[in-house]
Design a binder for these strands. Sequence first.
DNA 1: CTATGATTCAAACGAACGTATGAATCATAG
DNA 2: CTATGATTCATACGTTCGTTTGAATCATAG
Lengths: 225, 225
Amino acid sequence: MAEVRNADTRERILDAAERLFMAYGYDGTSMRQITGEASVNLAAVNYHFGSKEALIREVFRRRLDWLNEERMRVLDRLEAEAGGQPVKPSLIVDAFFGTLLRMADDEARGGMTFLRLLGRTLTEPSEFIRAFLAHEYKAVMDRFKEALFRALPDVPKAEIVWRFHFMLGATSYAIAGTDALRLVTDWQIEEEDSVDRLDRLVPRLMSFLIGGLRAPLPHFDPPGQ
Amino acid sequence: MAEVRNADTRERILDAAERLFMAYGYDGTSMRQITGEASVNLAAVNYHFGSKEALIREVFRRRLDWLNEERMRVLDRLEAEAGGQPVKPSLIVDAFFGTLLRMADDEARGGMTFLRLLGRTLTEPSEFIRAFLAHEYKAVMDRFKEALFRALPDVPKAEIVWRFHFMLGATSYAIAGTDALRLVTDWQIEEEDSVDRLDRLVPRLMSFLIGGLRAPLPHFDPPGQ
DNA sequence: CTATGATTCAAACGAACGTATGAATCATAG
DNA sequence: CTATGATTCATACGTTCGTTTGAATCATAG
């Protein structure tokens, strides 16, 4: 029995789908674009993955499995080194967002293409995609929220959750790419070539995130508290 | 000659399109959905607007024209009150992002629906939409960047532009709505009802944004500068 | 009332969509 | 070599897409 799955076809489809979903979105990318770019037959996607929905789930799973496990490993190590004490907030933020951003340099794990796809997809309209991501992210989110709760015992938990949310947004934009940056600027990012740009993006974004996370607490004007 | 355009049909189409584009995205919303929800004939969109592309442009123009003019007016007033001195960064940020967020309470100007649409659209894959938004935003962006340059003379301009970008991302996520928040939390936002939620979101987000904007500058590790 | 132009309407267009089918081709086990 | 099951392939299905058409309806000007 010949049971060896042709890994090459599967990978070629996943690579093409990753790139096209990043560029044109889920609804904006057709099966014929994907199979054309991957140089495989139109029926190959349904044969190997079952459907377009199942394909994009696999596109994400292929990268997110490793990413979220790596995030857990880094946080494990930080907590072990802290030996019972809470981990510093900046280290927790770096474990979550820094680990993500450093994927950009790792072409074997999707590199910048996957990062931009992920950045765009968190606001993706398609319900099933957001539901899928929420499910994939649940465990790692809970771990990191808990770590932040312990690291910032004086900050109300609701406030921490909101700031985590804000940090996700800032990061998504940052990695959604230069296209979105066109909203803010029209000059090419001056004196910086694109290799340099990423090296500088990480510390830039980290400063911003930590500054936001550690900002003075808001006070609510008229009614509540 | 009967030259009075039926404003009712146009407005009903725009309202339906705004709501549906918010919920399902541009590619995910069909003309038949829009005209069905608006209770108008299928051909009405092409008759009144020309095409689906022209329709979504009008959806945005209807709201953004006022928003960006209002932002300019607020900044005008702040600069007049400062009388030559630079305006405080927190006031500039509030003029830009606070003015946006306060639209949520103004149902006549789109309210929360338009805000969520805008939040989602800044990462919209469709090239022509981002190009259109960049064009619509150019003037107001330039004004606010200039104001921030003057307010923060010690911060490199490239740094300010990036941080503006990060602030846009955090805000987009915040207004893209509770759906995206599901990534971070699964509990209903506790003790807060949805009316209360918005009143608290604004000071929460503002604290975060100012904290990020005023964070210590990053230093770039190995090579450059 | 009549004429005119704006608007609405039902119906249809060709193109593109995701998916399914059954035969052809391939690699391997026996 | 033959048999088997995995994979590829060309082709087609039924649906939905955005847009167009030409007649019907409406409101107003003269």
